[in-house]
Amino acid sequence: MATFERIKRIFASGQTERRAEPRSGVPKGVHVLVVDDSPTICAVLDKMLSQDGHVVIRATSGEEAIALASSELPDLIFLDIVMPGMNGFAVLRALRREPMTHDIPIVMISGNLQATEQFYVQRFGADDFMKKPFGRGEVFARLQELSKSGRLIVRERVGETMVTEPVDQAMHDAIPDIAMPDENDLLK
């Protein structure tokens, strides 16, 4: 019977893909700030999270991340470590010093192969670390763990209207479901 249901799901017209179905254990409507200088990583995380009903805000620099975190007060931040200008460690320290952003959970991400980054991430106060490449399962495991531990709390936003860019469906569908590190991340 399970095989028949699986075949039916694959060939049924109008059926959504498995990866588009919401993940359990994570509250819906999480506002997530994705900070990465790679447009690919931002697009992949945006696709993964928005398919599950979350709101994604993007920043491509450390300075922009601090400004958006202070003004938007996201529920969660995915923060790249290796960025030009202000790196992820400096952003993490700045966010932890500010009372408004101090308690926002932060998951650091990096394609750098050095294990010492994980040590510094914990020492500077990040909530978790995710290594590139990563897939949907790993992203949602981080969300579930933060939710289960009580760190991920979805703030109620009354009367908020989020202005988003129109989505080109073909471009959205072309985004892969796994995020690979940029060559620059591996060289640093």
Rank of each mutant, 00 (worst) to 15 (best):
C42E: 04
T164A: 11
A126N: 11
D185A: 11
I41M: 04
I153V: 15
A2K: 15
P181N: 15
V107K: 00
K148M: 10
G53F: 13
D127I: 12
E98P: 01
C42S: 07
S147F: 12
P27N: 13
M100F: 08
E72W: 06
S147K: 10
F89P: 03
G88W: 00
R136M: 12
V26A: 03
F134M: 01
E5K: 08
R19V: 10
R23M: 14
A65F: 02
A179D: 01
I153M: 15
F119K: 11
I57N: 13
Q15M: 12
V30H: 00
L152C: 03
D127F: 13
P22D: 04
L45R: 10
Q51P: 02
I81Y: 06
V139E: 00
A43I: 03
K8H: 12
L113C: 12
A67N: 10
Q144W: 13
L68T: 10
I175F: 13
P22G: 03
L33E: 11
D168F: 01
I77W: 11
R97M: 11
P39G: 09
F134I: 00
V167I: 15
T40I: 09
K188S: 14
G125S: 14
I104K: 03
D128W: 00
S149F: 05
V26Q: 02
R18H: 06
P133C: 06
P39N: 09
Q51I: 04
P105T: 02
V107R: 00
F124I: 07
A94I: 04
E64D: 15
F4E: 14
K131V: 12
A90P: 01
E160V: 14
Y120M: 09
K47T: 05
P166D: 09
R155D: 04
S50F: 09
H54L: 09
